[in-house]
Design a protein around this nucleic acid. Structure first.
Lengths: 229, 229
DNA sequence: CCAAAAGTGTTTCTATTACACCCATGT
DNA sequence: ACATGGGTGTAATAGAAACACTTTTGG
């Protein structure tokens, strides 16, 4: 029984599409780009491109992101493979979607000046080509599920951040309000935040202390299954 | 800026590989097949095959499973896309892995007589071709994460089952012992099991009541985020 | 009557929720 | 002096964990 044969099998185009989430201190944004070629030229789309014959799919995602936005050394995670036969109007393309989390403040000038990419608040995304809306929806759902048990919240924040900023982030992700005291208590009880002596003085007279995520200490606790929310 | 062009892009083979988990009342098993063609002919492998030019990737997975095992109408879920350039010895193949959960008792004769597929206990899997071990490991991890919040445990059990069988299943998945009283209390508190009048009499003199999973009622509660373990 | 598995409650502890006031500071 | 956001504690409740004996019945 020879179900698989390599010769004479159909080859198809394989693409990657990147969903980049950013947080600006207030809301979650997603990075979109004006598509520069047909079909659907001029419409908004995720950052996408084709995988080369001898290129790892993961590497293709990083390369495409770099080419289209200038972003490099971003940790991206595979989200899902979108494989409907008719998903791309121009022919058979299987697309592997990747998502990443960055803090938009650190990167936004670099992106919008050099490239045709733009941040959109999640609540105000334009209509997207092909099945990109579906990809985005899936990524949003995965973000919610992931952020509860993994420290990716910290990817979305600047290196140092206040507890208020962290709380704003969780509130944005879950579209809910949290109690400040309970939130502080819980997040500090995990013991993966280090309080700095320095204060942030922009948003209040009193100023609020900066914290940093203690990656090293987190690694030690990781296997115990930490719940962040 | 024309990063993507459809013509002149590299096309590659796209495959699917299926990880089928089964539970026999005692342990978790995985279905493997003796590979029938080169390279690596005669070695153990997951059920795999190529995606056709006009075939949805999901459909390809179902077709391949049917062809290699006879199993049809099994709910499979996409696990991950394995995209390393050198993962297949015979050439560039991007593989999308799928996994499914069935109760091995219901299917085992059908499978092993008609086809070259065999059940292996998770603890005694032979060495596998290519990156199939990695696929299996990822599937095991996903099973653990998924089973806590989704009612897939019931896919692995026969239609009617005893609380002991259900507990055995969770114990097998998490490789741990659970307290019978606490387990019973918790699982019944979810209110998705219906107790039958009938008793299972094989494993004890006293006999233990059968239960069935109440799918309809589960659908109603689904959105509230049930925790099964 | 005995071996083997089924069935069943209570207590302790831990985690989550609800809730309100004082503090520090720049203007 | 006051407006603004920062920082903090306690009590009530719910959920998880620890723990052991009685019941049934085929042989």
């Amino acid at each position: 029984m020879d179900i698989r044969k390599y010769k004479s099998r159909d080859k198809v185009l394989v693409a990657v599409d990147c969903i980049i989430f950013g947080f600006d201190g207030k809301q979650i944004n997603v990075l979109l780009i004006k598509r520069g070629f047909e079909p659907e030229q001029g419409k908004w789309s995720l950052m996408g491109g084709f995988v080369g014959k001898n290129e790892n799919v993961d590497d293709a995602a990083a390369r495409v992101l770099k080419q289209l936005t200038g972003l490099a050394d971003i940790y991206m995670e595979q989200l899902y493979c979108f494989g409907k036969a008719d998903r791309d109007l121009a022919g058979r393309v299987v697309s592997i979607a990747y998502s990443a989390f960055i803090n938009s403040a650190d990167y936004s000038e670099q992106i919008s000046t050099d490239h045709e990419a733009r941040w959109f608040p999640l609540s105000k995304t334009p209509s997207l080509i092909f099945d990109h809306k579906q990809m985005l929806d899936k990524a949003k759902k995965a973000l919610r599920e992931k952020v509860a048990n993994h420290p990716i919240g910290f990817e979305l924040l600047p290196f140092k951040f206040t507890l208020r900023q962290l709380q704003n982030l969780y509130e944005a992700i879950y579209e809910t309000k949290l109690d400040k005291r309970n939130f502080t208590k819980k997040i500090l009880s995990i013991k993966v935040l280090k309080k700095l002596k320095e204060k942030e003085k922009e948003t209040s007279r009193k100023g609020s202390f900066y914290y940093v995520f203690d990656r090293a200490h987190y690694r030690k606790l990781e296997h115990e299954g930490i719940k962040f929310v």
